[in-house]
């Protein structure tokens, strides 16, 4: 029994030592890895802004938005990015009615999203901060082991996105499917308003103020059929947010009721490449005119 315990212990220690070495190296790489590019203007948010603003038509800009991103993750990405690129002068944050959907609160525990979200989060979000979104700790542990303990890897930049034009034409799908996905738990029950998202929007605002970064918010154009079906509680919440931003002197460039031709859209709520070109130029014009 003793010999067996010693051998098992020896192997366990060996594995722990191996994990420890990899952890040390990966922590070093995370600390010293330069991810993303230094830029004056940073575009951040979820898939709407990711496919809606093309940084190529802007001066010295980078779009690091990622699909399905919630504002909790956006805040931590922003912090990490500014830490790495302190010369950033302006941040353009994509927002919309769906920013405040309770659906966003499930992303760190929903089986469909959690693996991807943990992959984006493990290098930038401390465990204590993660607690507030009630994550699936098993998935977190597995992601952490895979990324930090198994081998030394120099790249830990899964949280960095880029401009990605959507070319897929999904207009054949029903508009209800898009609405359902963003706002409804099931056929009839709405997700509640996400308090976490409201709080973290403030965190983004205060962080930018603290770092003297000019923050602007953008709501991209959406099709009329989609806008008409946005549930009332989300419309009310968005109006409250609008007033709040106005009160804090944060510009909101709201294009969501802009009536564009269908040829500008990839689907009901995402622009295509042509739409992105229009929006980017239109936004720059509006910003310069103010």
């Amino acid at each position: 029994m003793k010999k067996f315990s010693y051998k098992i212990g020896f192997w366990c220690l060996g594995i722990l030592f191996f994990f420890g070495m990899n952890f040390g190296m990966n922590s070093y790489f995370i600390q010293h890895e330069i991810v993303g590019q230094s830029c004056k203007t940073l575009i951040i948010g979820e898939s709407h802004i990711r496919s809606g603003l093309n940084p190529e038509w802007m001066e010295d800009a980078a779009n690091i938005a990622q699909p399905a991103e919630n504002i909790f993750l956006t805040f931590h990405k922003l912090k990490r990015y500014i830490q790495l690129h302190p010369k950033t002068q302006a941040v353009i944050l994509g927002i919309g009615h769906n920013t405040f959907s309770g659906f966003n609160d499930t992303k760190f525990r929903d089986a469909h999203f959690a693996h991807e979200f943990m992959n984006r989060a493990y290098a930038i979000i401390p465990i204590r901060a993660l607690e507030s979104v009630g994550p699936d700790w098993r998935i977190y542990t597995k992601t952490y082991i895979k990324n930090m303990l198994l081998y030394p890897r120099k790249k830990h930049d899964a949280f960095i996105g880029r401009y990605h034009p959507i070319i897929q034409d999904a207009r054949q799908q029903e508009v209800d499917i898009f609405i359902q996905r963003h706002y409804y738990k099931n056929d009839t029950t709405l997700y509640p308003i996400s308090d976490i998202s409201i709080q973290y929007l403030d965190s983004v605002i205060y962080y930018c103020q603290e770092k003297n970064i000019e923050l602007s918010t953008v709501y991209i154009p959406q099709q009329e059929a989609y806008v008409a079906l946005i549930p009332e509680i989300y419309q009310e919440q968005f109006n409250t947010t609008k007033q709040h931003l106005n009160h804090l002197n944060i510009p909101l460039y709201d294009f969501h009721q802009e009536r564009l031709d269908e040829s500008y859209f990839a689907n009901f709520d995402h622009l295509n490449h042509k739409g992105a070109e229009w929006l980017t130029k239109e936004l720059l014009q509006r910003m310069h005119s103010e």
Binding site: W11, I15, K142, I145, K146, L149, L150
Partner: peptide, 14 residues
Amino acid sequence: IYAGVIWMILYYFG
């Protein structure tokens, strides 16, 4: 071989 097998289990585990 033992170490390689254990490593692969940990890698694919999840």
